[in-house]
């Protein structure tokens, strides 16, 4: 009961914020920004190459949100609507990079599973491995694995074929696996060196 009333209060507050943003009220815009900046920035970090570009993308996205907020009709989650804008901005930013139409080859047969113990790395290091992926792989990996888009939806968004999406995703996973492996190896080597 208590949770319900809190949710309702949140909804009311959000409704009030959206109304204010539609009127281009700077205070409401500021509140909306503060309320969602962290969630949206995390998405930007995953989709962009580095922090600077992630911040640029977040700025562009918020500008688009404030500009288009009048088009939000209240149907569906407002957070989801904003997330889509952030993702679309990132896609616009990196879509120009050509996607290689790789058909099914030996790579696709390679295993993409990983021992979870290998991922006991700092989160920023793990994030860096995604950021270092080539644009096309990064976009597809994030869309599919992090944000739950289907290959059909990705193909439509990036104007590529489904098989290209699949093969690029697989390639991205292999690169990540390799990166994690090499980071772990270098850490082990460092530990041994320090030990000596």
């Amino acid at each position: 009961m208590r949770i319900m009333s809190m949710n309702n209060r949140h909804k009311l507050n959000l409704k009030h914020l959206i109304k204010g943003c539609k009127k281009q009220d700077l205070k409401a815009q500021s509140e909306l920004y503060n309320g969602y900046k962290d969630i949206l920035f995390t998405i930007c970090l995953k989709y962009c190459k580095n922090v600077e570009e992630a911040e640029d993308n977040l700025q562009d996205a918020f500008m688009a949100i404030f500009k288009n907020i009048t088009k939000y009709n209240g149907k569906g989650s407002f957070e989801g609507w904003m997330k889509r804008i952030v993702i679309n901005k990132a896609i616009d930013r990196y879509k120009k990079d050509t996607f290689i139409n790789v058909m099914i080859n030996d790579d696709l047969l390679a295993d993409t599973d990983i021992d979870t113990s290998q991922l006991t790395l700092p989160l920023n290091v793990i994030l860096n491995t995604i950021q270092e992926l080539p644009d096309r792989y990064r976009l597809i990996f994030n869309l599919y694995e992090m944000d739950g888009y289907t290959h059909k939806e990705i193909a439509k968004l990036l104007t590529i074929s489904e098989s290209t999406s699949k093969s690029n995703l697989h390639r991205a996973k292999l690169i990540l696996k390799e990166k994690i492996k090499s980071i772990n190896l270098s850490q082990t080597a460092n530990t041994i060196n320090y030990g000596k």
């Binding site: 993409t112 599973d113 990983i114 021992d115 991922l119 793990i126 995604i130 694995e145």
Partner: peptide, 11 residues
């Protein structure tokens, strides 16, 4: 060893 698809593990 706890093996998982790297995508899910990252998420």
């Amino acid at each position: 060893e706890n093996r998982k698809d790297i995508g899910k593990a990252y998420k």
